[in-house]
Amino acid sequence: MRRYNSFRSISTGTLKWLFLGFFFLYTLLPFLWLILSSFKTNYEFTTAPFSFPETWQFENYVKAIRISGLPRLFVNSLIVSVGSTALNLFVSSLGAFVFARERFRFQNLLLNIIIAGVLIPIIGLMVPYFKIITTLRLYDTKLGLIVTYAAINLPISVFLLYGFMKRIPRELEEAAVIDGCSFRQRYSRVIIPLSRMGLVTAGIFVFLYSWNDFIYALLLTSSVKARTLQLGIRFFVSQFFTDYTAMFAAIVITILPSIIIYIIFHDKIIHGLTSGSVKE
């Protein structure tokens, strides 16, 4: 409708595409360079840094997996991320359900305190987290990371799920109560199934956080027993030494799961991110 005016001058249009093009290339070219390099020999990488690989060196990937012990790190990361997502969603959905569908004293105060947790710079809490996890004898265990990641993400999950559950019409729940639904069944049979989308959104956030976190993996683990992919990447430099292209292959492997999740769920991720930022 109003667009007949937007191309008033050619320079605005050019400038616009310069902007869009710059950020497009800035976002993609480095990854492309990394991926292309990961298929080259080290000789080719140093002599022809910007060309396509002459022959695609898939053995870089075989080497990467062998040298870095990636499968083990991968499994650890998966267990930790799935575990923390499950724990977080369980705890936060129970709480969000009560906050959204019940009335009790100090309700708003408690809810606001929990949601305000998103404002706390978690990095400032390194020492107490280290102390808590060692005291609970969870240092260097996957469970320690699971509990920590689940807890760190409680405010954001409660915030997202509360918003979601608040929007479910009362009538649905009342009908269920008349049909004889108990308190627990209202949660498990009515609200949870209706909040599936909210659970997926919150779940993706927790999963990606746990999958990508570095600080607490660094702080709370010491051996390969609980080491996650992200922490493993840090050891690539010493493991691969001067075999750069194999190291790049290892890095590409570590970012693949995030990219796959993003390709599948990008609508939900973007929606989840914006659901909190637009006032209702």
């Binding site: 497009f24 993609l28 990508n212 992200q230 922490l231 995030s258 990219i259 993003y262």
Partner: peptide, 14 residues
């Protein structure tokens, strides 16, 4: 929009 957001799902480490 989807492309611009991509780096946010990739770990800072990578």
């Amino acid at each position: 929009r989807t492309i611009y957001f991509l780096p946010n799902v990739i770990s800072q480490v990578a």
